[in-house]
Design a protein around this nucleic acid. Sequence first.
DNA 1: AGCATAAATAATAA
DNA 2: TTATTATTTATGCT
Lengths: 209, 209
Amino acid sequence: SIGDSIHDHDSDKFSDTEDDQMVDGINLDEIKEFAKAFKLRRLSLGLTQTQVGQALSITEGPAYSQSAICSALANWQLAQSQSYPPSIHQQSMFEKLDITPKSAQKIKPVLERWMKEAEERYKNGHQNLNEFVGMEPSKKRKRRTSFTPQALEILNNHFERNTHPSGAEITTLAHQLGYEREVIRIWFCNKRQALKNTVRMMSKSSSPM
Amino acid sequence: SIGDSIHDHDSDKFSDTEDDQMVDGINLDEIKEFAKAFKLRRLSLGLTQTQVGQALSITEGPAYSQSAICSALANWQLAQSQSYPPSIHQQSMFEKLDITPKSAQKIKPVLERWMKEAEERYKNGHQNLNEFVGMEPSKKRKRRTSFTPQALEILNNHFERNTHPSGAEITTLAHQLGYEREVIRIWFCNKRQALKNTVRMMSKSSSPM
DNA sequence: AGCATAAATAATAA
DNA sequence: TTATTATTTATGCT
């Protein structure tokens, strides 16, 4: 039975056994192997985990932000270099460290793809790689501002009179309403877009059946 | 009254007989009425605005993007509540800016025609309607998850520190707590909403008469 | 039955 | 186009 199978002695299940460790139908050993190789490739490009994480959060979206990637990588590396007490279920190794085998499986192809491109660029010169990696980590999207009804009324009034306010007008409005200039500018962009959409839609409807 | 003053119109191609709001010879009230009725009919068929938009973009062409339809309909619906006292703030947000009466007049028959056919098919059975609308009928709502007190405590602690966790933070939390990432994300959305509601309530109740 | 709130949808800022 | 906020719906619980 399962209870009986828990042994006291140290078993090196995670390093050198022939039997693959399967969790949720995912081959842990395969992932560990990948992590090891990934680290090697990363180091040969002279990149830190942080750099990889930042670059990925840009190319792949915020879900692959630095900390997530880093912890994933660290975990894999940990996993492949440590043996765990047998009393701990295989899966808990990942759970404890905030990454499930499933997540690992999911992230693997993304890393693979990214690394491939990085290496490609590395071949074409360091500058190329730096460009690829060294993008600003400031991918953060600005918090959506919500306008007060009063502000919206004023904005709408202006828009009604003039859909393309001058730079000076925008500045004035921004100051008057207490919003950033850029926010006001974007508001007009979006408003014009909305108008255009409805107009296009409407004119289309005029075509006969 | 208005009716009297326009009694002897000349150049305009329209005549205003009643005290309805007339713009460019188009009866706004009529359109508003139509919008209201349209929404009702849509709901009684169990269709969302999104579905209508998608279906229309197929039968009438790509100009009928979902958001365009949505905003047009929303505007009409809000337009019909313009007689609210100024103290109610919803009003100013929309006015009639996104949609010209002329355009509205144009699209009306298209929507009318489409809705008529949809209702016809509905009578002949759901399958028929689904075919027409082009959607899958059996999209079940996700089961409401109930969080454990422990999970809630951790979530609340995080929320206290940061109401807008990054994607990575959400992922980490999800792993840590053993819930789907999306569930955690939504939790924060709802929590922010709740906070905002409370704040609004408080400030309203605390404001002097 | 009614409430609290998770999920879904709509609106719209970035 | 994407992602966040705002609103609505509906479910699990008491």
